[in-house]
Amino acid sequence: MIEIQTDPLLYRVQKPEVRERFEALKQRPVVLSVQNLYKTFESQTGTVTALKDVSFDVYRREFMCVIGPSGCGKSTLIRILAGLESSSDGKVLLDGNPVTGPGPDRGMVFQSYTLFPWLTVKQNVMFGPRMSGKRGTSAESEARQWIDLVGLSKFENSYPHQLSGGMKQRVAIARALANRPRILLMDEPFGALDAQTRCQMQSYLLQIWRNLDITILFITHDLDEAAFLADRILVLKANPGEVNEIIEVPVPRPRSAAQFITPEFIATKYRIDQLIHPDQGSPEDALPFPRMTPQGDDVE
């Protein structure tokens, strides 16, 4: 029997510098404000409440992750924020202005690959600026810089089908950033990638985020990913989707894979796990003791 040694409340015992960091964060202007958001669906079995009274703020240059058990409505939430779905009640404010539909001020990176297959990497990145009427060599050289930023300069004239999954998502990030959005919404963007590529992409994303004035709201179901990337983690409850807790991640920045074994990191993960699976005791209890029985012989 393995005892989990970590104090489950360790993440709350904030060192002064951690407390200072989050106080400073909350002094920054609010970029995205979600107030009393409700979302209900009509289904054959009756009304389903997907989101119930969800409220939170995202501050400028913050990296916020949203995590929750499956079916907690995290995808619905981000689609409402992007303007792809409407809410049943409540407000979404971007810089104080209500969100009414999809727009270039909120960049979105989807889990599925959504690069336009008929456009080259460069043309994909230029798609947003083109929609707002930007053309010519300056738009093109700007697009080159975004491609450079995600490290794909060699591939600017390639078509999406020639790229790997990770490269496609990097282009998708560059494409979303090219519109200079106020906030970048990411809906499990690395969910379809293999574990190693995912780790690389997380580091890439942190690097990009550190060098730009960009706020990120990132949806994930991966505890490691959330604890590694986020300043704060919004944990949702399922049925209905409600805010469970907003965890302030004490792991210092800049982050690296070496921090995976620090007590802060483990404590954060443990806390998320507790919130997502509240009734689950030690994982060992759920399993019956394995009986090492040779064929047919009954060994006591």
């Binding site: 992007a82 303007g83 792809l84 539909g101 999809p102 727009g103 270039p104 909120r106 960049g107 979105m108 989807f110 599925s112 959504t114 336009f116 297959p117 008929w118 456009l119 798609f127 947003g128 083109r130 929609m131 707002s132 998708a172 494409r175 979303a176 519109n179 919404l185």
Partner: peptide, 25 residues
């Protein structure tokens, strides 16, 4: 559908969706 949604989040209006996404797609 995600291609259309992506185009919308990139600022494409209805006419642009038709001419820049649906038709080439």
């Amino acid at each position: 559908l995600p291609l259309l949604e992506a185009a919308q989040t990139l600022g494409a209006n209805q006419a642009q969706l038709l001419t820049r996404v649906v038709i080439p797609g």
